[in-house]
């Protein structure tokens, strides 16, 4: 897979340069630790129709994903955040599903970039 298809390289490289090559691994690891938990929270919130918890989880996913350059993934999370804020979760299940499957690709791409 070409990581560039899901990760904006200038953003990622700027982050790596700013943080240092060693530290970026630690950051990515923290992202790998946190994001599955946030995705699980998002799904739970959707099932419970808890709009506030839904919005918060989507918000967190969005903000950290954007930091690494996962901009499309972040944009999808942002759409969900807005749905949560407006308490309109009608179209949410489909998008949550895309987000969960999308994360697999992001994980793979970031892992490849770190091994470079």
């Amino acid at each position: 897979m070409n990581p560039q298809s899901v990760i904006d390289l200038p953003t990622f490289e700027a982050l790596r340069d700013a943080m240092g090559a060693d530290y970026i691994d630690e950051l990515v690891q923290a992202y790998f630790d946190e994001t599955p938990q946030l995705l699980a929270k998002l799904q739970q919130a959707l099932a419970a129709k808890d709009c506030d918890a839904f919005r918060q989880a989507a918000h967190s996913i969005k903000s950290t994903s954007n930091s690494f350059g996962a901009l499309d993934f972040g944009a999808l999370a942002k759409e969900l955040e807005i749905m949560g804020r407006e308490a309109k979760l009608d179209g949410a299940p489909e998008k949550v599903k895309s987000l969960v499957t999308g994360y697999e690709t992001i994980h793979q791409a970031l892992a490849e970039l770190c091994n470079d």
Binding site: A18, G20, Y23, L27, E34, S60, S63, S67
Partner: peptide, 13 residues
Amino acid sequence: DDNKVNRLLLGRS
């Protein structure tokens, strides 16, 4: 910050 990535990012900078 409740988000670990954000904490690490800011803390490092």
